[in-house]
Design a protein around this nucleic acid. Structure first.
Lengths: 121, 121
DNA sequence: TAAACATTTGAACAATTATTCATATGTTTA
DNA sequence: TAAACATATGAATAATTGTTCAAATGTTTA
């Protein structure tokens, strides 16, 4: 209580480089874009989803295929797919009892491959 | 208990496309690479770290500058920087009392910019 | 050398998240 | 139309994570 050193205190020490700080703040990403950018990375930030996406990069697959490939339960895969769906990263089509999922965002593959360069450097 | 439907059960239903599944499994990312790839994305998957990285893309900055820019406490920024440091995404140099941080991985900027395309499409 | 400063660190806490389990929904087949 | 199948969904749980707070470390200055 009573002390919030981060804004308009009586003394305002800190901030070593006021100009630099002001300039960076001026061109800073708007909050919503920072959130959105973090969100797409967060979505890619899970090993199971990584394997799902890698699998889908080879072509469309249904849920039980993905479960087998990623060695996860179908329920777990389904939850992951829902997340990917709500972010429009995958789409699906029904064929009889099966739902075939496929990638629906060309940026995903580019991000994925760019990330792989980092991993395999 | 007693039922684990995911492997070598008595009946082995599911797996709609055995060939497809086998082929994808054959070329699947090794577990360690999937983990590493997820890790780099997870690291980028936080709005505060996104703003820290964006700021550092403009040049080196010290911790209190970053705190001011991201409107976070210095402690919080420091924790984030530690994470980025342990993953070798940033480096720092000391100048008197200040530690100046800067980016230390050329992939990060490329990933960042590729992600921005997705956000601004 | 004591005080001020810049940053780090660890513990604590709340929030988020991945997985599991049980159940529901929709489709095909016998 | 009942049973089998493929998938989705919600609740529950355990694990992870971001932030805060208090205290420690290392540097400069008075």
């Amino acid at each position: 209580m009573e002390n919030d050193r981060h804004r308009e205190d009586f003394c305002e020490v800190h901030q070593v480089h006021e100009e630099k700080v002001a300039e960076v703040k001026r061109i800073m990403l708007p909050e919503e874009k920072a959130q959105a950018l973090a969100q797409i990375f967060k979505t890619l930030g899970d090993p199971t989803r990584i394997r799902i996406i890698f699998a889908l990069m080879q072509g469309e697959l249904c849920v039980c295929d993905l479960a087998e490939i990623t060695d996860s339960s179908e329920s777990s895969v389904s939850h992951h797919l829902r997340l990917l769906r709500t972010q429009k990263l995958v789409k699906y089509r029904r064929e009889g009892k099966n739902l075939f999922y496929s990638l629906d965002d060309h940026h995903v593959e580019k991000l994925f491959k760019e990330g792989l360069k980092h991993v395999y450097e």
